[in-house]
Design a protein around this nucleic acid. Structure first.
Lengths: 138, 138
DNA sequence: CTCGTGATTGACGCTTACGTAAACGTAAAG
DNA sequence: CTTTACGTTTACGTAAGCGTCAATCACGAG
């Protein structure tokens, strides 16, 4: 540090090291490598070192979102792979459309679950605040 | 079977056996017993046999909804226990209100995740159908 | 050369959420 | 009595999703 000239800028083609990606998305290196093991990420290798491109970054974001939604990594794999597919043949397209229908149904069920839960939490909260008021009035 | 009289109706006070509950919610007996182990269900015991009351039934439904939302059983426990609490003292009420705030934030994040995913699925679907049209036009 | 930093590949461990027998009890039906 | 259905506990097994070493390599700075 302190040596500003001769910094090795990675050709400005926006790539990341595994540590940079880990820091950005707040996951461990282990996690990122695990996702690679499971075929969810396929970073470039420069020698033995992993180089992550924008595509990998996007996929990592998608994976983490999928996790927040409670999907398993296997399910996430099928979802994420839908995003950057080749045009494909008819059978493949039909399969994809079916997958989409399935996933959409799941997600809509989850949204209903969320809305119900939020409504009930609001009720509980109201009761809590009413009880608090009563307590403090005594 | 075939013997219709002398059926032992359970006093009509609406209770269920473990098998009935399992069938209704499409889970295994093992699962229900596991939830009891984790303190999520506390059925009555008639001798050694478990008897489930409406309260248990409601809690099971809440547990399963929590699972669909991707919460762990520990998290589900704190959520479900919020529903049937006693009025409680002030500290308890404040704790509960904080829990509610936390859970609400999580749920709202998940809803955003869902909406984003649904939007992207719609895009993928549109591309798929466009590709299909092209294929079939050739 | 040596050190520090950051990377790599195993490989074993751990928690969660059950599955899956094994071995047994009980009570009604045939 | 025997079978059948339904229940019980105990306990080991398993898949997912990483955590946590350990051993090793590569490289730039001092």
């Amino acid at each position: 540090m302190g040596c500003v000239h001769n910094i090795r800028v990675p050709a400005e083609t926006s790539t990341w090291s595994i540590a940079e990606l880990a820091a950005e998305y707040d996951v461990t290196l282990r996690t990122i490598r695990f996702y690679e093991d499971r075929g969810l990420l396929t970073p470039e290798r420069r020698g033995t070192v992993r180089i992550y491109h924008p595509r990998d970054r996007v996929r990592l974001a998608l994976i983490l979102r999928g996790k927040r939604l409670g999907f398993t990594l296997d399910e996430i794999a099928t979802i994420v792979d839908m995003y950057d597919r080749e045009p494909g043949e008819e059978g493949q397209l039909v399969y994809l459309l079916n997958q989409i229908t399935t996933r959409r149904a799941e997600l809509e069920q989850r949204r209903r679950d969320i809305d119900e839960t939020l409504a009930e939490l609001a009720e509980v909260e109201a009761r809590c605040q009413a009880d608090l008021k009563t307590l403090r009035a005594e």
